[in-house]
Nucleic acid binder design. Structure first.
Lengths: 336, 336
DNA sequence: TTGAAAGCGCTAACAA
DNA sequence: TTGTTAGCGCTTTCAA
């Protein structure tokens, strides 16, 4: 089943079939109609391989991410994939699984095989060499969730987000505000935890509150990690205990809510808790949080990419992504 | 950077380069060495498009799944992707997002573009037409997590798994054993919920216990859904309340644990709870569960596929996948 | 074991 | 607007 048979059936040349089906170049309405009819009748579908070889375009985008199982990553992926699919693009998935060996294979081998037109890197800091390799073969890159040197990137302002969450607590008259931040491992790739810590710090500072190091705990962005960290914070003697905690992700905040409960502390009467993300389960837990919108972030990354793939690319600046405070049941004024 | 330049530098023909690099056909050790050296020196990587066009092989496998965000699916995907990567294969991801329109596009368009050598369908029931289309273009299919007519499939024995979970409760002397099963929507694609219900039923029957319809609740396989369903069950007057509940997935079981807690019921003193999956958070919740191993299921699906891609395929039977009871803190004898 | 050469199926310049 | 045709870069048959 090749383009030649369609051409024969439609009574035109293969070039016309190609033009009619791909939408590139001019074809009379009549010819287009016959071609489409013939293609449908024969059940013809272009061979991507042949098309790619001839045109240099693959209609395929690589998406690289460090994990699959976490809400943020799978949501970005979902958003990007939908959008790409509607643009007729395939998605090739490269999951690094937090693993250096895999990473090398992906960047030194898979991505260079000319199978993708572009790559989207999610919450990944690429090395100069990685970026250079990709640029060398003319593949545009778009980053989501963290800045990459010399690459168009979509990200929320993590400092501002953390500041907003913390200021919400300050606005409720909390003074002893704890932090559940990222641990060293989770910071390695992106410094996002460091930024969220900075936002917390800045908000306190502006309110004239001194950051108490005993109120800072670290975790790995999982619910379990958040639980353990929160137990440490909440387990302190009463006058040292925070009346509120800012967790750098919703999953950790969920853990903190459960920890409070297990200690017999009421949320929000004894402790207020705020997170970042607006995870699917935030509503269920009644968690006050700063929403980011990962599905939209993924879709938006695709839009940016499509623009870059156009010859007349009027690449705009890096835009900060929207975020939004969602107040639910987990925060309130401290009990006097 | 094409094969011709490598050939020139190595002082051999392009045919020899191709053979040396792909491992197909015989090449003298000396020639291979020179080719490999030349390729490395030039930074040569094959063009997949050209290779595919010439050989008909794409070194690319499509993975189709109904959702991305749930633990089971993303775990299977992760397992399959790792395994494929190590075999030098790319993964093209088709996420249906529980959406019929997407599904049609995927099956009538994307998968037929000859971009994949095979497809793995996760927890999906394919229609006869969908299978036929794929077979017509010679693409092998492997199913994971549910039977597909005429297709090699890897799945756990859902009836047996549910029976095991329920028999664990019976063995602890529970008699009033509730069920949190799937709702109609979640059953549509795979009848997995129906099978797990059957297992529960069969275990009760064999123990001479009559299944009480008031002890059956339905949910959508989410934590929230499990919570709501469990509240219904646990909210019943004391003598009608189940002393134990079997939830058809761990996420629903987590919800049930939280529901019990919110009602002031102790797990396992007042109610025992058992799930299916061995979710990453099962340990954290102390949940007794029947483990299945989705990462391994994904990897295994790849092995089966690779075998089918060999000409000398000695396709074995459908093998039932392993599962295993993991007893933790959420189950105990009922309080007298 | 190696090389020559004929495609694989499509796209895009160019000519008409 | 349409057709002719020369590749795109590789694999594989066939012959040596």
């Amino acid at each position: 089943m090749s383009i030649a048979e369609v051409a024969r059936l439609a009574g035109v040349s293969t070039a016309t079939v190609s033009r009619a089906l791909s939408g590139r170049g001019h074809v009379s309405a009549a010819a287009r109609e016959r071609v489409v009819a013939a293609a449908r009748e024969l059940g013809y579908v272009v061979s991507q391989a042949a098309s790619s070889l001839a045109s240099g375009r693959t209609r395929n985008v690589g998406i690289v991410l460090p994990y699959l199982g976490r809400w943020y990553f799978s949501s970005v992926l979902e958003g990007a994939q939908m959008q790409l699919m509607h643009a007729g693009y395939d998605v090739t998935l490269y999951n690094l699984a937090g693993n250096d060996a895999e990473r090398r294979i992906v960047f030194e081998d898979f991505l260079l095989r000319q199978r993708v037109d572009a790559v989207i890197a999610v919450a990944l800091e690429l090395t100069e060499a990685e970026v250079a390799n990709l640029h060398a073969i003319g593949k545009p890159i778009v980053g989501v969730g963290g800045p990459i040197e010399g690459v168009r990137t979509l990200m929320i302002d993590d400092v501002a987000v953390a500041r907003l969450a913390t200021e919400h607590l300050i606005g409720l008259d909390h003074r002893r505000i704890g932090l559940i931040g990222g641990d060293r491992a989770s910071d390695a790739d992106f410094h996002m935890p460091a930024k969220r810590l900075r936002g917390w710090h800045a908000a306190l500072h502006d309110a004239g509150i001194e950051a108490d190091p005993r109120l800072m705990a670290q975790a790995d962005f999982t619910l379990q990690g958040g639980y353990a960290a929160a137990k440490q914070l909440f387990g302190a003697p009463r006058h040292e205990r925070p009346t509120a905690v800012f967790a750098a992700s919703d999953e950790m905040a969920f853990g903190a809510i459960l920890a409070a409960r297990d200690l017999g502390l009421s949320v929000p009467d004894d402790v207020s808790i705020v997170g970042i993300d607006d995870h699917d389960m935030a509503e269920f837990f009644g968690l006050t949080t700063v929403a980011q919108f990962p599905r939209q972030q993924g879709a938006r990354a695709v839009d940016v990419l499509m623009a870059q793939l156009q010859p007349d690319d009027a690449t705009a600046e890096d835009t900060p992504l929207p975020f939004e405070l969602r107040v639910r049941r987990s925060t309130a004024r401290p009990r006097p």
